[in-house]
């Protein structure tokens, strides 16, 4: 791992209480992610990889330990502060795209920009750039519900990158796609990492998808097994 440290998880624990039972997902987990990394997290169902992704994205909080982002603690931020922090630093890509069906592609992509002070014309320009990058310039006014899965995921990627966040968090981004389309999406993520320097953390079940990452962490019962796959 090289480059400036982006994420630093120190002795992070996560436990759930279900009835009288206490379930431990992680116990004093340490993890670092450098800027420009493309990290795949794999593991069996229930291993906690999505919980880890949620903690990285500030949508779930650890029950112990510390999470640093750019040397600042984020696990102690309030809900409102976390929302602003996510808006400024993170782009999310979901397995089922999570687009707004009542909005067209351009409007979907514009959503994160509504949280900025950009003018309408500036937002429009950024949306055009993002859609062009994912190859959907000609579909800007199309309703996302009329698009194929691959196209929808590309809209979702455009939405994730439109505000130029440092980090992209991807939750099974190709889990709902066929192989060919999945490869297109993964190539796009790889391009964003290599050409545009985006740091990417991707949770996946798919070893072929993980092969696009620079490195893969296998998570099992709260323990990492690291394999460097970088080219």
């Amino acid at each position: 791992m090289s480059g400036k440290l982006l994420y630093d998880l120190k002795s992070v624990s996560k436990t759930f209480v279900k009835g009288k039972e206490k379930i431990t997902i992680f116990d004093k987990l340490d993890m670092s992610i450098a800027e420009g990394d493309f990290l795949a997290i794999m593991g069996p169902s229930g291993s906690g990889k999505t919980t880890l992704l949620n903690m990285l994205g500030g949508v779930d909080q650890p029950t112990g330990g510390e999470v640093f982002f750019n040397n600042s603690r984020v696990d102690t931020l309030s809900e409102g502060q976390l929302a602003r922090w996510r808006a400024n630093n993170i782009g999310f890509i979901f397995q089922f795209y999570n687009l707004m069906p009542m909005l067209n592609a351009a409007r979907n992509v514009e959503l994160p920009l509504l949280l900025t002070k950009l003018s309408s014309s500036q937002r429009k320009k950024s949306v055009e750039t993002a859609l062009k990058l994912v190859g959907l310039s000609d579909r800007a006014t199309h309703m996302t519900s009329e698009m194929s899965g691959g196209q929808q995921q590309r809209v979702a990627i455009a939405r994730a990158i439109v505000s130029d966040p440092k980090l992209l968090l991807c939750d099974e981004p190709t889990g709902d796609l066929d192989r060919k389309t999945a490869d297109e999406i993964l190539s796009m993520l790889q391009l964003l990492n290599r050409k545009f320097g985006k740091t990417i953390v991707m949770v996946t079940h798919d070893a072929a998808a993980a092969a696009y990452a620079k490195r893969t962490l296998h998570l099992d019962k709260g323990v990492f097994v690291e394999k460097d796959l970088a080219a």
């Binding site: 809900e79 996510r86 999310f92 999570n98 959503l111 949280l115």
Partner: peptide, 14 residues
């Protein structure tokens, strides 16, 4: 639910 949660994840306020 999922649309609201997605917007919140993106950074929209409650």
């Amino acid at each position: 639910e999922r649309e609201i949660a997605t917007l919140r994840a993106i950074g929209f306020s409650n």
